[in-house]
Design a binder for these strands. Structure first.
Lengths: 231, 231
DNA sequence: GTCTATATCGGGATAGAC
DNA sequence: GTCTATCCCGATATAGAC
């Protein structure tokens, strides 16, 4: 019987749904994505196999749901650091810190998400259509990082920087997944050094003399985007 | 299992092996990687399913074998253009042209190879240990592209450029796999513009004033490589 | 709409006989 | 080296309970 007394902002369905997702993530973390079976996940969540599929179309939809949830839960934290931290490099660094901290316990199965980066057909591709909303919110955060940056950001380049930073972030995460050094220390160093180099490069690119160079970068980005109008 | 180094005295085994591989590639090209089943491949090659697995540990090992073969077959073509073409940008462009031309008929299933870029555990990862030999030969080609370049290539940066160019190439290929424009025209444009920008940047970086910048790039690369000594 | 149970299928991968 | 038989698991289907 349903219980109408419960305040329950979440209904029974949501409860079940998140119980399945939690069981899945728990297993993914402990045994990895491939090693965890849907039968196990269902059993761990105390639901029948069919019920797990009722809520999630596929095993990978669970990873997708995690990605979604991650976005939702990271958003307020990113907001927070954007309020507090000043200065472009520090702001970027803070955003990245939030993400890496959040993803840290899930590092071992994050590959399951990125694995489809090379498959444009696949719904889980981080560059694909289905993940667009999540990606756009992410890119918007990088746009916010530039707020408060005095007018020394080159105007011509500025509109494309958030997208490029998102790409840079994806590269860092890919590196991180591979990073076998203790505590992924190499990624930490790489984050610092690359961010430093990045901001220096932006500063260098800002000098008027390099306007032709900037123009070519913009042309490159436009050529890559083509007429598809991703944003 | 099989020995990739040997010029292979073609016995019965090699004959069967390549018959299976050919059947697989044929199906991959016609129906894509996912849509082709091992049963189909075996049947097409007139061997039993188990026999296909005797020669290839997994379906993906077939893609790996293709990657291997691609390297073997492209090598002499790359040699050829390196003999003929002069000038850094033209040489790089020529190398890329050989690759894209070779991969063109296989574009639709090439994603199956790159799909494991995000999975360090996976033997097929293009960054992993198992593909190292193939990767190194590839990187060596990019090193050769710099031959004949007068001493205007920055000495400090030079040792790391081949690796970086290989990475750049991987990025281009990933973009290409995603490219839905007619005849993948956008990738063609991107190749031209990015290569142009790349050589310009190298030229810019060569000026003595930018030595500190170069130093930081080198530090970045070293930090990324860590003590693992990839090369 | 939510959930169980069970049967079935398709396909990757393996074992073991020959 | 080659085959047949089998296993495992993701996914679907179905019938029914609440």
């Amino acid at each position: 019987m349903t219980n109408p007394d419960q305040p329950a902002p979440k209904g029974k369905a949501d409860e079940t749904r998140s119980r399945i997702l939690n069981a899945a993530l728990d297993l993914f973390r402990r045994k990895g994505f491939e090693q965890s079976t849907m039968r196990e996940i269902a059993s761990e969540a105390h639901v029948a196999l069919g019920n797990a599929y009722y809520y999630f179309d596929s095993k990978e939809a669970l990873v997708m749901a995690f990605y979604q949830r991650a976005g939702d839960e990271m958003a307020p934290r990113v907001e927070e650091v954007l309020q507090e931290v000043k200065g472009l490099e520090k702001r970027l660094s803070a955003i990245l810190a939030v993400k890496f901290e959040y993803f840290e316990p899930n590092r071992t199965f994050l590959g399951a998400l990125l694995r489809h980066a090379a498959d444009p057909e696949h719904p889980l591709s981080p560059f694909g259509e289905e993940t667009r909303r999540i990606r756009e919110r992410d890119i918007e955060f990088f746009a916010r990082a530039f707020e408060g940056t005095r007018g020394d950001m080159p105007k011509d380049l500025a509109p494309h920087l958030p997208k490029l930073l998102w790409l840079y972030q994806m590269g860092l995460i890919l590196f991180w997944i591979y990073d076998r050094s203790p505590n992924q220390r190499r990624t930490t160093v790489l984050r610092e050094k690359s961010l430093d180099l990045l901001t220096s490069t932006l500063k260098l690119l800002s000098i008027p003399l390099l306007r032709p160079m900037r123009k070519r970068i913009v042309e490159l980005v436009l050529a890559a985007e083509g007429d598809e109008a991703h944003a």
